[in-house]
């Protein structure tokens, strides 16, 4: 009985590590592939369009909710004791940001836009301030999609 908790702990740790690694490498492969496919939808932080021709504008956004795996949570819990970079969360948030931009670009392409300006990010902690709840974060990317310039006339 004493070892039961230890076995459960090690099992969860192993599950978290293996599943987390597989999911991460698959996700990164998919991200790189779709970033190449959507390379012609341009994104800019600038509030201003490249020229002042009249274009249809629409709000587009992409949202991702990302949660930690058990292995990452344990590494982060240990890191919390000594401080420093929470390295185990870095890839998680990198993936979330890039995925959010990709989803935003997909929406922009569906709407016939070729660029998104004024792109901003927002994050929201899903459990809020309750530390015992699920630990996940939403990353939202949004911006103004610009359609093709209207013919002058």
């Amino acid at each position: 009985m004493d070892h039961f908790n230890l076995i459960v702990f090690l099992g969860l740790l192993l599950l978290g590590y293996v599943a987390g690694r597989i999911a991460e490498s698959r996700h990164y492969r998919s991200i790189r592939q779709r970033e190449a496919e959507l390379g012609d939808v341009l994104v800019f932080a600038s509030r201003f369009p490249p020229d002042f021709r009249v274009r249809p504008q629409t709000l587009v956004g992409g949202s991702v909710v990302v949660g930690e795996d058990y292995f990452k949570s344990i590494v982060a819990a240990l890191q919390k004791l000594v401080g420093g970079r929470l390295k185990s969360y870095e890839t998680l948030l990198d993936r979330a940001r890039r995925e959010a931009v990709l989803r935003m670009k997909e929406e922009a392409r569906q709407k016939g836009a070729s660029m998104v300006v004024n792109v901003k990010f927002q994050t929201f902690s899903i459990p809020g301030r309750n530390p015992n709840s699920l630990r996940a974060v939403e990353v939202l990317a949004y911006g103004t999609a610009l359609g093709p310039a209207m013919p002058r006339g």
Binding site: E35, G39, L42, F71, L78, S88, E90, T91
Partner: peptide, 30 residues
């Protein structure tokens, strides 16, 4: 549609936002 040169999305180098440490090495060290 020709854009001014600053309106471009050059490909970003991979891994600029993550520390290149093996997770297990990180875990063992901690």
């Amino acid at each position: 549609m020709s854009l001014p040169p600053e309106y471009a999305n050059p490909p970003l180098p991979e891994g600029i936002n993550v520390t290149r440490t093996h997770p297990l090495a990180d875990f063992a060290r901690l």
